[in-house]
């Protein structure tokens, strides 16, 4: 066998190595991670860390209310109790008989929470919801619905639940 044949064999053999279960090398901006893994893996890089104090909010869909939604990011699967603050868009306070319903769903998974949360009024315009649990990591949408008399308006707030926090003793 000539030397060029050995070289050709080597090139073919190395080329064959690109075909097995290992995905093709990713573009440089993915840090060398297989492209398929980047697409399918939970996007944990953008999720807030466990323990982060979150304050989400905005204007409700029909423009009636300004809503803020505060909670500490908990470990996946842990119960947590966010606080919702609501005022009219013009800044006037919410009446004492207004109510709030909070829910969370994973649209891509077609499911909500395994729990049935309860919301209580702390003071007019401020509510605590107990029994919230995001049992999977990934993209959730909080739904805050405000009812005032026979009028309702709502706001959807996307949130990415991170995986469980690194235990303090994991690196020992």
């Amino acid at each position: 066998m000539k030397g060029s044949h050995f070289l050709l064999l080597g090139i073919i053999a190395f080329a064959a190595c690109g075909k097995p279960a290992v995905p093709a090398p990713a573009p440089a901006n993915t840090g060398g991670v297989p492209a398929a893994a980047v697409v399918a893996a939970p996007a944990v890089a953008t999720a807030p860390a466990v323990g982060t104090a979150m304050e989400l909010g905005g204007t409700s869909k029909a423009g009636k209310y300004k809503i803020t939604f505060s909670f500490n990011v908990e470990n996946m699967g842990a119960l947590f109790a966010p606080v919702t603050r609501v005022q009219h868009f013009d800044g006037s306070p919410l009446p004492a008989d207004a109510t709030v319903v909070v829910d969370a769903t994973m649209p891509a998974h077609h499911h909500g929470m395994m729990t049935k949360p309860e919301t209580t009024q702390l003071v007019p315009g401020q509510f605590r919801t107990q029994g919230m649990r995001l049992h999977m990591q990934g993209n959730w949408v909080f739904s805050v619905q405000v009812r005032e008399g026979d009028q309702t308006d709502s706001l959807d707030l996307p949130f990415e639940q991170p995986p469980e926090a690194l235990p303090a003793d994991a690196a020992k």
């Binding site: 290992v22 995905p23 090398p25 990713a26 993915t30 840090g31 060398g32 991670v33 297989p34 893994a37 893996a41 939970p42 996007a43 944990v44 890089a45 991170p162 995986p163 469980e164 926090a165 690194l166 235990p167 994991a170 690196a171």
Partner: peptide
Amino acid sequence: DGPWTPAEKRLMASLV
């Protein structure tokens, strides 16, 4: 497959 990315490290750390 190449070195672990920060996101992968974070995820695998959560499994320890």
